[in-house]
Structure formats: structure tokens, C-alpha cells
Design a binder for these strands. Sequence first.
DNA 1: CTATAATGGAACATAACTGTTCCAGAAAAA
DNA 2: TTTTTCTGGAACAGTTATGTTCCATTATAG
Lengths: 188, 188
Amino acid sequence: MDTVAPTGARARTRRAILDAAVSVLSKNPAASLADIAVAAGVGRTTIHRYFPERTDLLTAIGVYLLERIETATVRARLEEGAADAALERVCQEYFELGDVLQFAFENPQMQEWTDWETETEADKALERLIRRGHAEGTIDPALPPSWVAETMWALLYAAWQHTRTRQEPKHSALNLCLHTLRKTIRTG
Amino acid sequence: MDTVAPTGARARTRRAILDAAVSVLSKNPAASLADIAVAAGVGRTTIHRYFPERTDLLTAIGVYLLERIETATVRARLEEGAADAALERVCQEYFELGDVLQFAFENPQMQEWTDWETETEADKALERLIRRGHAEGTIDPALPPSWVAETMWALLYAAWQHTRTRQEPKHSALNLCLHTLRKTIRTG
DNA sequence: CTATAATGGAACATAACTGTTCCAGAAAAA
DNA sequence: TTTTTCTGGAACAGTTATGTTCCATTATAG
């Protein structure tokens, strides 16, 4: 029950709850804890054991998402190769986040639950990358770093949306996304 | 009290409720009717008079939004001039919708409240426009019409977001949006 | 095997929102 | 002014989600 020394079981159920919460809340932001409990295959009481109040769960989701974005960013190894290629790599990594993407977009209040506003490592790394692209000439210097980043997120959302409404396979949506991003950042 | 013959007052308060609802729900999709009533400067009872149940209000918002998008589309006069120029015009019109934009993005459930799925006149006109652009050569034929449309909406969202987080003035965000859209649809 | 940790479920209290009714007062129309 | 329409607020019942407590059961560790 302590927060310290999380045994295997505790860490596992905690994860299960968080994953289920993201999945359920991304489809219906107003879902109840009972809904989440069912999706997690867990008793509602158990959820309260891990997250005393609803807000505790929400803030935990916040840091969980940030972690996942963080690791995805690291995986893309932004410092290697040409900046535009690295940007495409990270775009692909983010695309794989799926649920997380949808959740973050459709729960703007997230920004209040956690320190979403304060710049994360991922944010900074991304900004560095784009500035490097500006210097290299592989990314249009007319586009501010923050705008490039926001555009990428927006295109990711559009791509995900595209797989949803149209029945299109994920890879073709991702291709459209990358193709569009490429044209967007191109110089000139 | 009848639905027919809406006197000036009735139409006015109805509008006030709808506007307040869009404004409030766009910031907090889980807001209560009491919150909306306060924002509208109206008693909660009055809301129930106009919209007996919550879902009635939500569906009404749905058609209201569709109407506003519809008129914005008409204003852009999509049939006139070059396709890419017309696309920029309609993008500007949509940008002006503000709240509506944010609301539509952050309430995906809207699609269940109303016939959001079924293609509207605006959707069809937009698709015709893009196909025309394909034929003219002013819009990249490699991009399916639905993707171009979704990209435009995504960029609009990004632009609006950009005015929010950064303090940037609206016009410069719109400029970035249009600039990016232009590059996106460019052939090649 | 035994002891501890972890879980699920029932039961309960509480709070919040929804939807309804009723009535008095304000606003508009006649 | 008189009449009709529209409105706000109070009061209420019903529903739902939340948060808590307790206990029996299962899994895990030692």
C-alpha cells in the first residue's frame, strides 16, 4: 500500500488502470470511474486505492502521457542525421502513440491537471532540432519553431482522424501525414 | 411558448443560450447547465424551457454549428476564381468562427448528437472545389480531397492554438496558417 | 505452509447534476 | 393601462457518480 517499493503486482495494475483510463477517456471524456474499472478488468474500489480522487487519476494520466511522449522522442534520436529526416522520424514515433494522441487533443483541460504548459525535455529537444533545420536550410526559416511543432501535432491528429472516419489503413494515413509535413517544412 | 411564431425575445434568448453553451463547453466539455445559464445571463429554468433535456441543447448546438459553417462557406464563394485562392478564402472564413472551431474539435461526440457524419452542403462544395483544383493543377492531385479538407481543419486548429498558448495576435497566426496551407497544396 | 499483500464486492453516505413544478415579478404587446 | 408573454428563483424528487468502510477471498512472498 506504500508508495515506495512497488511490488510487481502493484506496478502492473497501476499500469492497467492508466492504460484503460486513457483508452476509455479518449473515446468519452465524461466516462465514469466505473467504466474505467470495467475496461481495466479491475474493481472500482481498486482504482480508489491507487488514486484516492478522480483528479489524482487525471494528473497521473498527465505525467504518464508526458513520459510516453518523452520516450518516443528519445527513440527518434533527434540529434542524428539531417534535421528534416529526424523530424519525420519523430513524427512516426508520435503517430504510434495512438490513444495518447487522441486523448491529449480531446482533453484540453489536461493543461490544468499537470504541468503541461511548462516546457518538457521533449519540447526543448524538438525546438533545438527545428532550429538546427533552420541553420541547415532543411527547414523553412520563415516558420517559427513553435509553429512547426504545432503543425506536426495537427497533422498527426488529422492523420489519426483520417484512419477513423475513412477506413484507410494506418500506414497510408501516416504516409499522407509525412508527405504533407515534408512539403510544409520545405524551404521557399 | 410555442415553437412556432418565435417573437423577437424568444429568438434572442435562444441565441444567447446557444452562444454561451458553445463558449462554455468549448472550454470545459463537462460544464453543467448551471454554468451555461450563468454565462448566458439566464436562469437555469429558462434553459430547460428552451431545451427540455441536455441532449436537446447539444443537438441544437450541432445544427447551429453546421449552420454557421454553412454560411461561412457560402460567403467564401468557392466557385469563383482559382481553386487555391478560393481555398484560402474559405480558410479565412473558418478561422473567424473561433469558438465554433475549438468546440467542434474538442467534442468529437458531436458526431453522435447530430448528423455530423452525413455530408453537408459545405462538405460537398469543398470537395468539388478541391477536385477543381486537381483539374486546374493548382492543388496537388496526390492529395485526396478528404485529406486536404482535414489538413485545412487541422491547420486552423493549430493556428487557433498558437494564438492561445503564445500571445501572438490573430492575424499573424492566420498568416502562418495560410502560408502553410499554400505550401501544402502546391503541386509537386 | 503461513503470513502478508492485494483485490473485489457489498453497503453506505455524500455531493452534484438533472428535470419538474409552481409562483411572483418583469417585460413586451395590445 | 391591461393583458399576455417571458423570465428567475425556490423547492423538490430522482438519478448518478464519488468517496469510504469493512470483510471475505485470492494471490504472492517468505
